[in-house]
């Protein structure tokens, strides 16, 4: 277990131990370890890195540190700036899990079911990646390259998520077979950006990576169908492909109602 006290130290350790698995809240990592699915050479504990814990708004850009928790998003000022992300945060696990789980963890895991991903995608978020070599940013859409795979280099850490809040009406919905504490059978974030005349939707758990669909507002009548058509769901233990596609169509219709009301 490596426990750096600053971002610089963390990056140095990551460069030295590229096999080290970063951990923040541990809500994904510890489950993997407990189920014996992963045995990393080392654990890089980022809980003592203050730079990752903060969020800030500068020149219209919201910078959310990788260590910001769902509880902080849900109950802090970020909720007003990123309402769909706040709604998504509310759907994550239980209060205890929301107190521990972080944005950076959700991006690191890069699950197609990651709850924070669809709302960030509809807001066009970028990911900030840091290493001893320097800092780079890339669009979240490019960062997510496959199921539980992302574009991180072995010496890099996710340091922040950058987003320019659109201010557009937006919402997030998640379907699961019980009323709390579920992994998404399917999820949807949607925003109706009148300024740009654009509808944007992103869905989870209906393809290898969260899907992204955009269309002119004028196509609102067919948009729910476009979203359902864009999905590439599978049958698994959590749900059937047919149900996922059906539910996406219903969710998209309701989300449009909410955002265009």
């Amino acid at each position: 277990m490596l426990t750096p006290r600053s971002l610089d130290e963390a990056l140095a350790l990551k460069a030295e131990h590229p096999g080290a698995l970063p951990v923040e809240g541990g809500t994904d990592v510890l489950v993997e370890l407990n189920f014996d699915r992963r045995r990393p050479d080392a654990i890089l504990n980022l809980n003592e890195v203050p730079e990752l814990k903060v969020w800030a708004r500068e020149e219209g850009i919201l910078r959310l540190g990788a260590g910001v928790t769902y509880t902080e998003i849900l109950h802090g000022p970020v909720a007003a700036l990123q309402p769909a992300l706040a709604e998504a945060s509310r759907t994550v696990g239980s209060p205890q899990i929301r107190n521990r789980g972080t944005l950076g963890g959700n991006l690191g895991t890069a699950s197609p079911a990651g709850d924070a991903l669809p709302p960030l995608l509809v807001e066009g978020a970028e990911v900030e990646l840091a290493s001893v070599r320097g800092v780079r940013t890339m669009p979240l859409r490019e960062f997510l390259v496959g199921p539980k795979r992302n574009a991180l280099e072995p010496d890099e850490l996710i340091s922040a998520v950058l987003v320019r809040p659109s201010g557009a009406p937006q919402t997030f919905m998640k379907v699961g077979p019980r009323n709390a504490m579920v992994i998404a059978v399917v999820s949807l974030a949607l925003s109706a950006d009148r300024e740009r005349g654009e509808l944007r939707a992103s869905f989870g758990s209906a393809g290898p990576v969260p899907g992204f669909v955009t269309a002119p507002i004028a196509e609102r009548e067919s948009f729910a169908e476009q979203v359902a058509e864009a999905a590439t769901p599978i049958d698994d233990v959590r749900g059937t492909a047919a149900y996922r596609r059906h539910a996406l169509r219903v969710l998209a219709g309701r989300a449009l109602e909410r955002c265009l009301a």
Binding site: E87, R90, T91, M173, K174, N179, V250
Partner: peptide, 15 residues
């Protein structure tokens, strides 16, 4: 949260 789907935020009463 007091509707079907609960924390998933899926309905305001529709359906």
């Amino acid at each position: 949260i007091r509707l079907p789907g609960g924390a998933g935020n899926v309905t305001r009463g529709q359906g």
